[in-house]
């Protein structure tokens, strides 16, 4: 494996690029489930970010540490509790929430340890998913949901609408959001949620906790 700097990396996954664009330079970032460190590497080397990562898989961890990234082997479901309140400017959780045993608790932890959180999720209500269930009567599969039902790690799938409803329930504001279609083209999440919920294959959202901490970190 190469020592990876973003200069030698090939193009980053489109959703990771969207996430990277939401992050202010020189901020403190925790990437939860950072995989092989593509996003962290970009943020550290091109945006001067103080970046940390947690990754469950040892191959990913070893690749990250070998590339000089500050990454720990750990389980987000248990290890997020360790961090102090507001330890990071941004906590990133990309394409992982749906695979967690306790997504609501995890989301609360993200909002506790980060002033902002950036979350991306696959949209279960994406119209081809609905089509497959309605017409074929089979569990949806797509590039965003590539697993067959008996081998999927995704145990808590939701739609964009479901996710927005959870944010409302937890008093979390969506500062901005993007919806990606099958070709990777992105549009702002905007107000037309029903449309996004039908045509978006995945969503990337920037979150901020409302309440007493709101506005404290601008």
């Amino acid at each position: 494996m190469n020592v990876t700097t973003s200069a030698v990396r090939t193009a980053m996954r489109i959703d990771l690029q969207l996430i990277a664009d939401m992050i202010e330079p020189a901020s403190r970032v925790l990437d939860v489930g950072c995989g092989d460190g593509a996003l962290l590497d970009y943020l550290v080397n091109l945006k001067g970010v103080d970046g940390r990562g947690i990754e469950l898989g040892s191959d990913g961890v070893n690749a990250c540490v070998s590339a000089g990234l500050s990454v720990i082997q750990g389980d987000a479901e248990t290890d997020l509790f360790d961090y102090p309140d507001g330890a990071f400017d941004y906590v990133v959780l990309s394409q992982t929430l749906q695979a967690m045993r306790a997504p609501k608790t995890t989301l609360e932890q993200l909002m506790r340890i980060g002033r902002r959180a950036i979350v991306s999720i696959p949209n279960f209500a994406y119209w081809p998913h609905r089509w497959r269930l309605l017409v074929d009567g089979q569990m949806p599969m797509s590039t965003a949901l590539p697993y067959r039902w008996f081998e999927t790690p995704n145990i808590h799938l939701c739609s964009i609408r479901d996710f927005v409803a959870l944010c409302d329930a937890l008093d979390i504001a969506i500062e901005c959001g993007h919806v990606l279609d099958r070709r990777g083209a992105s549009r702002p999440l905007g107000r037309w949620l029903m449309r996004a919920n039908l045509f978006g294959q995945q969503a990337v959202v920037l979150l901020r906790q409302n309440g007493e901490r709101a506005g404290a970190g601008t």
Binding site: S58, V61, C64, V65, V71, I72
Partner: peptide, 8 residues
């Protein structure tokens, strides 16, 4: 919130 890497 220390800067830490950890690998097993």
């Amino acid at each position: 919130a220390a800067n830490v890497s950890f690998a097993e």
